[in-house]
Every structure is written in C-alpha cells, then in structure tokens.
C-alpha cells in the first residue's frame, strides 16, 4: 500500500512535468531538452531557499520562476538567433548543469531538517487526524503518506485546471494556433516568436515546479536528478494520448496527468518484480521509441497485408 501511495504521489508530482512537456512537444513540436536542466533548477532553487528558512510556498514559486527563465532563454536562442530548437535546448541544458551546481553550492542538498511543503503537509495531517494511521477503504495508511498524496493531487489538479483555462483565453488560443499554423498566426497579427518564447517559459516553469515539489517529497535536490526527464515526460504524454484519444484540450491535459500516474505505477511494479533500476532509463527510451514508431509501422503492415483494393 505504501508503495502504491508513493507511486501515485510521484506520478502526480511528475504530471506537472508531463504538462510542461505537452506544451513544448505537442503544441510547438519541439522536443525541448531544457526540461532535463530546468527540473533540476527548480529543485535546486527551492532546496537552497528551504535550507535557508524561506517560506516553502515562496521557495517553490521561486523554483518555478527559475525554470520559466531557463525556458525563455531557450526560446530566445531559438527564435532570435535562429538556432535549431533542439540545439538551443541542449545548450541551455548544458549550461544549467553548472548553474545548478552553483545554486546548490554542492551536488546534493538534503532537506531532512528543513521546513518544506511536504513537512508542512505531514504536520497538518498529524494535527487534524491525530493518530498516525488512518483507514482508506479498509486499508491502514500512514496519515502522513495520505497528506503527501493529497498535496500532490491538489498541485496537479489546480495546475491542470489553470492550464486548461489559460489555453481557452485569447493568448492561450493564439499560442496553440502558433504550433498548428504559424503562417496564419502571423497573418493575423500575432508575434510568433514571442509566443514560442512564452510557451517554452510556461513549459519549463511547470517542469521546474515539478522539480521543486519532487525535491521536497524525496527530501533532497541532486544535480543528477534531471537526466532523462524529458523522455519520462514524453512517455507520460504518449500514454495519456493513448488513454484519452487526445480528442479535446481538456482530455489531453487530463491524459498527461493520467499518463504520468500510470507510467509511474508501471515502473513501480516493474521494479518490484525485480527490474534492475539501472535499466530503467533504457527501457523508458525504448518505450518512447516504440510508441513513436509503432503506429506508423502497424499502418504500413496493415496496408501491405490487406488484399489489393479492386480498381474502380
């Protein structure tokens, strides 16, 4: 049960990452590897502020702002200096590795003693529930675990809903159209470059927010924690699309959240069954590869093995 709760909580926290990747990858069709750096940046900024006694909400928000700035830098390098989007992301991700080490002053910042959102949630749950276990559907659950899950759920639900509302505003609609048909958006007077910069800032802001929450949940920030997170986000988005069919904006955002949770659960189960943790990134990468290639391949095979259509 603890395992399930943990997987759910992390899945919800990383759903913010998935929503960020949804923006860069699905709206702008940019596989934005800045993600790997900005999730760590969010964690680093939040961690160092928390260690210094800053209010957890402020520290978390500061982490998100840091990520948004990193995303904006990628956007500016891509649009103003006409550098390929993937390369722009690689440059910023690489630079962020040093930035993150500077922010933290070392490669790992533990948060065991600090007052964090997680510790506050735990304190609250102890104050309200009193005892240290409560029963959910008959299962005994540590009340602190439940509180953390509730915190992650609130973060994911609020962010997802806010994102949905944003994409239904004039600015949000124009941003979505930018990825769909930039020529048209330009002809209708919107600054395409500005929207790409804004979109990547928003994307990486969400990613960094996810990182800040993750650091508080796991109790440390680490310079290595971002490696491969873009692929993790892609996997979540793809699973989400398979779950919901990506038929509408609301469903797509819900899908990213559900995809992230499901993916985390699958990983937890696989690890439980004895999957070597070292193989995790390899398998994630293979999964995304398969998810990107298989639909086209299946279509091709279907056409090949279908009896030839009689000519009209």
């Amino acid at each position: 049960m603890t395992l399930l709760l943990g997987a759910l909580t992390i899945g919800l926290i990383l759903s913010l990452l998935a929503m960020g990747v949804f923006i860069s990858f699905r709206i702008f069709e940019i596989p934005d590897i800045t993600t790997d750096g900005s999730i760590t940046l969010g964690a680093s900024i939040a961690a160092i502020l928390l260690v210094n006694g800053v209010n957890p909400f402020l520290a978390t928000a500061a982490g998100a702002v840091g990520g948004a700035l990193a995303g904006a830098v990628t956007g500016i390098i891509h649009t103003k200096f006409k550098i390929n989007a993937l390369l722009a992301g690689i440059l910023v991700m690489t630079a962020l590795y040093s930035v993150n080490l500077h922010v933290m002053g070392r490669s790992n910042v533990p948060l065991m003693q600090a007052k964090t959102l997680s510790s506050q949630a735990e304190d609250l749950s102890e104050a309200w529930v009193g005892g240290d276990t409560l029963s959910i559907f008959g299962w005994p659950v540590a009340s602190t675990d439940a509180a953390l899950l509730l915190m992650a759920f609130t973060a994911a639900a609020v962010t997802g809903f806010a994102l949905y509302l944003f994409f239904r505003t004039h600015i949000g609609t124009a941003m979505r159209a930018t990825g769909d048909n930039s020529q048209m958006v330009r002809a209708l007077g919107a600054n395409v470059e500005g929207y790409i910069i804004l979109g990547l800032a928003l994307s990486n802001g969400l990613v960094a927010l996810s990182g800040a929450l993750l650091a508080q949940y796991q109790g440390f920030a680490d310079a290595q924690m971002g490696i491969g997170m873009i692929v993790w986000g892609l996997a979540s988005v793809i699973i989400g699309e398979a779950l919901t069919g990506a038929r509408s904006l609301g469903l797509t955002i819900m899908g990213a959240i559900m995809g992230s949770i499901l993916f985390r659960l699958l990983v937890a189960i696989a690890l439980r069954w004895g999957l070597n943790p070292n193989d995790l990134k390899l398998i994630t990468a293979l999964f995304v590869f398969a998810a990107l290639v298989l639909p086209g391949l299946i279509g091709k095979l279907k056409r090949r093995f279908q009896p030839a259509q009689p000519h009209a």
Binding site: R168, T169, H170, I171, G172
Partner: peptide, 8 residues
C-alpha cells in the same frame, strides 16, 4: 489587436 486573458 492586443490579446489578453479574456475568454476566447
């Protein structure tokens, strides 16, 4: 025209 955060 400027696009704000109004409902599209």
């Amino acid at each position: 025209r400027p696009r704000g955060l109004g409902w599209a």
